[in-house]
């Protein structure tokens, strides 16, 4: 057995996983892209199974200028962004208040808990037919399907956030003449903010994963539709290109939320 290494100057002995890891992630990404070049350029894999990076890039240029599946890439992206963010905003203004109500009110908890816990584990594709039957094939059912997927994790996070307030903080506010409503607004909601933000990050991620399912509902535009449509024509390059665009948007928005979290909740993890 090798002996444990002595601790480096200025570091804590035995704390696992400390230090910067960004450069390692960058190397991972470069190696993966390198392998992608290697196996496609060397002809080890047929382009149908894995198109080359060059083919994907060319498809990107074509999609941006001439368009694929009857729309340009920007039109697809804009259609999808509207759906995902529409659903996300709708979930923010409903799921967060409901989650907080579930945390502070026995009645609200009893009311919403069975509904949320029942539908939460269901795959959106399972209730997609019902959504179509009930709401038709317009723009709203697409947004609604994504909204349903986002709603549950956000409500659950807000509800859990309510629990992060300490009973002493609540008692202190009561002992300074606060009313129940004031304490919910000025103490409980603020204390729940870190978890609400975590819920928003999880929610928007879930939103992107539901996008393709939502755009199975008679869409003629959108990144999910573009991927599905290209798959039917065995256009692997467009499929991969669509996946990369969705991934980049999802990642970029996650960075934005993380930045907002740092600015808006500087006390997170310090109490």
């Amino acid at each position: 057995m090798p002996r444990a290494r002595p601790v480096r100057a200025g570091r804590v002995y035995g704390a696992p996983g400390e230090g910067y890891s960004g450069h390692i992630s960058l190397i991972t990404a470069l190696i993966l892209i390198g392998l992608w070049f290697l196996v496609t350029e060397a002809g080890w894999v047929k382009p149908l199974f894995l198109p080359s990076p060059v083919a994907v890039y060319n498809k990107f240029v074509v999609a941006w200028t001439d368009g694929v599946a009857n729309s340009t890439l920007w039109e697809h992206t804009w259609a999808s962004l509207k759906r995902v963010f529409g659903a996300f905003l709708l979930a923010c203004v409903t799921a967060i208040p409901i989650g907080i109500m579930m945390g502070v009110s026995r009645i609200a908890r009893g009311l919403f808990d069975p509904i949320i816990e029942f539908y939460r584990p269901l795959p959106p594709l399972a209730y997609l037919p019902l959504v179509i039957i009930w709401l038709g094939i317009g723009e709203f059912p697409k947004i609604f399907l994504i909204y349903l997927a986002i709603f549950a994790p956000m409500a659950i996070a807000a509800r859990a956030g309510v629990k992060s307030v300490s009973i002493e903080q609540i008692h202190a506010a009561y002992a300074m003449g606060g009313t129940r409503g004031q304490i919910i607004r000025h103490v409980i909601v603020k204390a729940a903010l870190p978890e609400i933000f975590t819920g928003m990050r999880i929610g928007i991620g879930v939103g992107w994963t539901t996008l393709v399912a939502a755009e199975m509902i008679a869409a003629d535009r959108g990144l999910g539709f573009m991927v599905l449509n290209s798959a039917q024509f065995l256009d692997s390059a467009a499929v991969v290109m669509g996946i990369i665009v969705i991934g980049l948007f999802a990642f970029a928005f996650d960075l934005v939320v993380r930045y907002m979290e740092r600015v808006m909740i500087p006390w997170k993890g310090k109490v």
Partner: peptide, 19 residues
């Protein structure tokens, strides 16, 4: 009959609001 502003409380753990 309940908490009120005529009786202030200081807790063992500070119970201040970090925001």
């Amino acid at each position: 009959e309940g908490p009120g502003a005529d009786r202030g409380v200081v807790f063992q753990k500070h119970a201040l609001l970090p925001w």
